[in-house]
Simulated assay, not measured.
Amino acid sequence: MSAVSVSAQQLLQFVLDDDLDAAVRAGLMDFIASPAETTLSPAQSQQLLAAQQHLRSAWAARERHRARDARLARRAAEREARRAPPPVADSKPALPSAAAAILARAKARAAEKPSS
């Protein structure tokens, strides 16, 4: 997501309007309060920095929640795998088609030979 270049005053207006999506798109997370910035008062700069911190905290919490959900899902799948009955082995192992053909020919030859 690329930030649109807007003034610090416009960023502040987005924050004051509670339009954080627009503020983020406009570059709120790239805002750095500098003494050279003359359009904002220190209190207004602090509001923008507080909004940044609030968003960073919310995003970090969302990532922790997603990681927890993934961890719980993985544990549930492992638990289900342990509870599942073991796979039942076939009574006759399947032969590859070439081996089955060889066996069939050998059985046919054995059936043709007279027993002594």
Rank of each mutant, 00 (worst) to 15 (best):
R25F: 02
V24L: 03
T38W: 03
D30V: 11
L40K: 08
A33F: 00
L20R: 10
S45W: 09
Q53R: 10
P35S: 04
D18T: 14
A51L: 09
A51D: 06
D21Q: 03
L48G: 10
D21W: 09
A22K: 14
Q47G: 06
D30K: 04
M29W: 05
Q53G: 09
G27P: 03
Q44L: 11
A22R: 10
S34C: 07
T39P: 11
F31W: 04
F31S: 06
A26E: 02
A26L: 00
A50T: 11
L49R: 09
D30G: 08
E37Q: 10
I32L: 07
D18W: 10
G27S: 07
D17S: 12
L28P: 15
Q44H: 06
S41N: 05
A43W: 09
L20H: 07
Q44G: 01
Q46Y: 11
A26D: 00
L49G: 06
L28E: 10
A51T: 11
A36N: 11
F31T: 07
P42Y: 01
A43S: 13
Q53S: 13
L49Q: 11
D17N: 14
A23K: 07
E37F: 00
H54D: 12
P35A: 05
A26M: 01
T39M: 05
H54S: 14
L20W: 09
D18Q: 13
D19I: 04
S41Q: 11
G27Q: 01
P42C: 09
P35V: 02
Q53D: 14
H54E: 12
A50Q: 15
A33I: 02
M29A: 05
Q53T: 15
G27R: 06
A33M: 04
L49T: 10
L20V: 05
A33C: 05
A36Y: 03
P35G: 06
A23C: 03
T39Y: 00
V24R: 09
L20I: 03
V24T: 04
L48K: 06
